[in-house]
Structure formats: C-alpha cells, structure tokens
Design a protein around this nucleic acid. Structure first.
Length: 456
RNA sequence: GUGGAUGUAGCUCAGUUGGUUAGAGCACCAGAUUGUGGUUCUGGGGGUCGCGGGUUCGAAUCCCGUCUUUCACCCCA
C-alpha cells in the first residue's frame, strides 16, 4: 500500500493552523466590509479563453489547464499528435483552466452582469488561486487571495481608501513594521520617455523593479545586456535616485517629467492621493513613494501598490493597482476603470508565524467539557450540555465512559477552559463542580450560576 | 522552465572507513493515582532508513533513476 501524498505546492490546514488562518481572514473580511465592499465568489475553473493573454507570456505558462472530459484525443489530427509537441494540441484537448488570480474573473463577472450592477461596484473576494509555479518559501501552487476592487470610477478616493484598508488590516493583525510602496505607471512611462525607451517599457520595468534586491550595478548590467546605452542608463539612475520625502520626490519629479504627459499625470495622481490622506485625517506613515516599484502584471495603468513586512524573508504580502482596460478584453465597449488590492494570507501567515504575532486565544476550542463517570451520570450530563449550548456556550461531552483523568487530559489538550464534573454527589445536591483548567481551582455551583458566570 | 541541496519513528535529529537486532530527546499509550489534567517516576508501542533499480558476501551508508521538500534564477501573493 502506497502512502498518500499531496500534489506539489499544496497543503492541508489542520485545526491549529485553521484557527490562525481564520483570524487573518476574518480581520481582512471585516475591514473590507467596513469600507463598503460586498462579497463575490466565482468558479475555480474558467474557460481558458478568459484567462490566457491577461498575465503576459510568463503568466500563461503558469496556468493550470484542465483536460477536457471524455475521449479528448478522438478527433485530434493524427499528424499533430505525431509531432509530440504538446503546445500544438493543448488548446484542443483543454478548454478550461484554474483561476490564476481573482481580478480577471471579477472583470469577466462585471462584463457578464453589467446590466444589474450599479456603478461604482465594490466587491471583495476571498478564494484560492492556482499557479503552476515551482514552490519555494512563501510560494505555493495553491494559495488564497483576498481581493477588494472598485470598478466604474476613476476617483483617487479609491486609491486612498486602499491604503487606509491596508493600514487597518495591518494594525488589527499587530503587524507594525511594514511598508506600503506606491508608484504610478504614468511615472514609469514618463521615465521611459525621458530615457528614450518608449516601446520598451516592460523590458525596462522588470529590471528596475529588482533595484532594491540586486543593486544598481546589476541593474545596469542587465539593462546593458538588453541593449540600453550607457547614456540612457545614466539618465535613468538620475531619475531613480530622486531622494527625500514622498512630497519632495514628487515635487522634483514633477519638473523632471514635466515634458511627459503620462509622467505628469502620474505625479499629479500621486500628489492627490497623498493630499487625500490629510482630508481623511490620516497620516501617511508606512507609505513610501518608490519610483522603482514596477509590479509585473501588465494590465496596471495607474497607481500601483505593494506591501512588504520588514525583517521577514518573504516576498510581498499584498499588491494591487489601477487598471483601465480590463473589461475591454472581454468585449465591453464602455471603458470601465478599476482599482484593487490583493492580500496573500498564506504569506501573511508565514510572516506572522515567524514574528510570533498570533494571539494565543486563537487556539481555543470549546469553553466547557462536561465530565461524567458512568452510564447514569453520562445521561444526566447531556441535559446540562443542552442548557449550556442554549445559553450560547461552546461546549462538548467526552463521548466514551472513561476515567476522569482521561477526560481532564482531553480538555487540557484541546485547550478547553472549564470542566464541569458531574457525579452521583452533584446530581443529588444539584450543585455541580466547575473546574477552571487554567488555574486548577474548582467550585460548586448550580447550573444557573455556572451559566451566569460563563456568559458575563 | 534552468541549476544546487535535502529525505532515518508523529516531530527535531544522531548513526564511525560499507559490518550483528538502526538510536536519543520530545510526542503518543498504559500504570503509579477506582472522582482531578498540565509536574514527576516506571513500563510500552511505533521504522520497507522517501520510492525503484544497481554494485557488494553484506547497503541507512557507494552509484543511477525517480518523487518530495528546500535554496537561487525567472516570475510572483
């Protein structure tokens, strides 16, 4: 008999892990709801035509494809099969794929349901996504994203609120040392114009994004290899090295990029976002304007965000941005602008575990275990169990007749706070033994008093 | 997708130049204690040494393949 295993990059989540995951998840959901977002779920599978072409060539390769049902090779051209080139037949034997993120399915939903959606439409979505990536630390093949997006408005209030939501989530999770990086595709395009690299933006941005990680020297080398001239690179780094506070950097760049329409738009948008924080009477702590932030997904057109937890060796825990044309990819004639944020709870979990930030209460299960000694006391105990539950107290009974030691041991392992011990003596007197498992103290009380004590 | 490392009990790991019946700590089960857990003491169960092949009188140990996990690259939550 073979031992069962899990597919590469997937995991089970046992009760102890689930308690912590749900703590994160509930925090994010509560914040999303507080900002007026409504829930949406979409299928795990989408038509491949919905998914392909939205994430760039790299992204397409990472899509999990689902084989057609039935005898899927029956009608395939024999000569194509002869070539042994799976790409040739892929589109004919697979027409569905697992979702790669939540933004594209959301855009598809908006287009399909355009008639019954009131704009601006704010939705949140918490579901797993799948990527056929090679797993490593903080990178899984199945992981959860928690997205909140707004479509149908280009108001920068949405961008500002995204930052406010990130801050609120982080605060509730007790994560204090983190950075929200913000940039704008317009600024990046403006920079590309300034260094005469229009049309080669993606080549440029992918490398720029690695600046912090690999340093100026390596970025220069990679870009020269891609054919950028030393003169262009000098100009590039002059712009990238703009220093100071967010305000100062914005002011400097607004003159450096003044000749670029998209650069100017980017700077103005960012200035407005920072100004909005003031109107919200919020500060811009943790928010950093990073000219080198470039996020890979090709559909972003406006502000882009990324959140990193400091002093943890894990990638970004959240990312997002504005996209103007996503619905047009699904044949929508009107131009709907959208902006969204995505939290990766698997990475937040790993970071919190590493930083020891989980409150210990997340482990708690039932509050009370009712204990008994024999058939008769076990029968009696069931009626007490019903009363506890009716009072809203999470409680359970040890189902087998067992020594008290074993029952207390069970409660101890399950982190149950109280044991209600009921034997002949307690049934006779009506005064039941309530044992506090943490302190080891116990007292005799009526069921009414016990319920009162545990609910107040 | 490319390159490197890894795998021994549920967990963390020992295991000599290839040599008898593969060990420890923690965890688990039972007893010490017939109505009192988390401490202590005593005893116990648990391994196809990732899997498959090869070399050898003999393999956890050496070789090849494969899978898992992991690190770097690519990319990303």
């Amino acid at each position: 008999m073979e031992k069962p295993t899990l597919p590469k990059g997937t995991r089970d989540f046992g009760p102890a892990v689930m308690a912590k995951r749900q703590f994160i998840l509930n925090t994010i959901r509560t914040v999303f709801q507080r900002f007026g977002f409504l829930p949406l779920e979409t299928p795990a599978m989408e038509n491949l035509s919905t998914l392909t072409g939205k994430y760039g060539d790299e992204g397409d390769q990472l899509l999990f494809k689902v084989l057609n049902s039935g005898d899927f090779l029956k009608d395939i051209d024999a000569s194509k099969l002869e070539t042994r080139n799976s790409k040739l037949v892929a589109s004919e034997i697979s027409e569905k794929g697992l979702r790669y993120d939540l933004t594209v399915p959301f855009a598809r939903y908006v287009v399909m349901n355009r008639h019954e959606i009131t704009l601006p439409f704010k939705r949140y979505q918490i579901q797993p996504v799948w990527r056929a990536d090679r797993p490593q630390k903080g990178r899984y093949r199945e992981f959860y994203q928690c997205d909140a997006d707004v479509v149908g408005t280009d108001s920068l209030i949405c961008e500002a609120e995204i930052v406010l939501m990130i801050k609120e989530v982080m605060q509730h999770l007790s994560i204090h040392d983190y950075t929200i990086k913000i940039n704008h595709r317009g600024v990046l395009n403006g920079i590309a114009e300034q260094v005469n690299a229009s049309g080669r933006e993606s080549d440029l941005f992918v490398v720029i994004d690695k600046l912090e990680k690999i340093g100026e020297e390596n970025v220069r080398n990679e870009l020269s290899e891609k054919g950028f001239a030393a003169q262009q690179l000098d100009k590039l780094f002059e712009l990238l090295k703009t220093a100071g506070t967010a305000q100062q950097k914005l002011n400097i760049l607004s003159t450096s990029l003044a000749s670029s329409t998209s650069g100017k738009k980017g700077i103005d948008d960012l200035k407005d976002v920072f100004k909005l924080f003031e109107h919200y009477q919020a500060n811009s702590d943790h928010v950093e304007f990073d000219v080198a932030l470039a996020r890979g997904l090709s559909y972003y057109t406006g502000c882009i965000f990324e959140v990193k937890i400091n002093n943890v060796a894990i990638g970004s825990v959240s990312g997002g941005g504005r996209y103007d044309n996503l619905t047009q990819a699904f044949g929508s004639k009107e131009q709907l602008s959208g902006v969204g944020i995505s939290f990766g709870i698997d990475r937040i979990y790993d970071a919190m575990e590493e930083l020891n930030l989980f409150p210990k209460e997340t482990l708690a299960s039932s509050k009370v275990l009712v204990c008994h000694f024999d058939d008769a006391t076990r029968h009696y105990v069931l009626s007490m169990l019903t009363r506890l539950r009716a009072a809203g107290i999470n409680s359970e009974v040890y189902p087998d007749i067992a020594k008290l030691k074993k029952q207390l041991d069970y409660a101890n392992k399950k982190n149950i706070s109280f044991c209600l011990v009921i034997g002949e003596e307690e049934i006779q007197s009506g005064s039941l033994t309530l044992k506090n498992m943490e302190r080891g103290e116990q007292e005799k009380l009526s069921i009414e008093n016990i319920i009162h004590k545990l609910t107040h």
